[in-house]
Write a protein that binds this DNA or RNA. Structure first.
Lengths: 124, 124
DNA sequence: ATATGATATTATTATATGCTCATACAATCA
DNA sequence: TGATTGTATGAGCATATAATAATATCATAT
């Protein structure tokens, strides 16, 4: 993936724990990545009020079954949602509510940025 | 992009503002997307202590100049960093410190998840 | 055992993304 | 002006991602 990079060090001569750092950055990036999809965000939004079956999510989002299932799998793999099988149905629910804090923070940022832009445009 | 979807409505019959919603979700997704890159996260991390030139960031991260410049542009386009030109140099700095709150939240989530996994593996 | 319905997975295709080299651009200096 | 240096950008390749149709799996009912 990244083929560059060699061991940058801190001033003291102590080597920066870049190997470790790389892994952490990769994990963080993956987490952000799973949230970087409108359909997945829509699914999460639907799940705010509680668990839902795949079929219900298909209906609620207007997506295709395969696609919804796929995105749910991605969210599940990242531990964002959990799955509960009951008979024929698969109930998905939010596993990590911090997700919504994330979204709110982003919305705040966006709002701030758009407001600033508004002001910039309107104010001259 | 998403070609599906038709106007899902709330129970009351009032049409859900899906058009609006879609745009918001798109924006939020874009914001997450720009953070879903190890190199960009690395750049942001470097910028924690204050503004830096492209060259300094190239050195600090071990990336190629073109690549670093590109990622900085992406961050700039999203309003995450700002640019200040001084002579030949371009100084980049964090524009939206909320970014770090985001990263912290993600780290918390990841830590919680990994801990849980540890426990699951160790305890069973 | 067979049929049915809900969910998951596979294969395919289209699109997006990231990286690199080469080059263009801008500011400074000789 | 031309040379130099720092930064940005275009083209091309390799890879990743997403959407779809088709198919497989699983649970249940008959």
């Amino acid at each position: 993936m990244t083929s560059e990079r060699r061991g940058a060090r801190t001033e003291g001569g102590r080597p920066a724990p870049r190997e470790f750092d790389d892994q952490v950055l990769e994990l963080v990036a993956e987490r952000f990545q799973v949230l970087a999809e409108p359909m997945r965000l829509r699914l999460l939004n639907q799940l705010r009020d509680g668990e839902m079956t795949v079929g219900a999510l298909v209906e609620a989002t207007g997506g295709r079954q395969a696609n919804v299932s796929r995105h749910l799998s991605a969210l599940f793999a990242q531990g964002v949602v959990s799955r509960r099988k009951e008979g024929v149905f698969a109930y998905y629910r939010i596993q990590d509510p911090k997700i919504f804090d994330l979204c709110e923070l982003v919305c705040d940022s966006l709002h701030a940025r758009l407001s600033a832009r508004q002001r910039a445009l309107g104010g001259g």
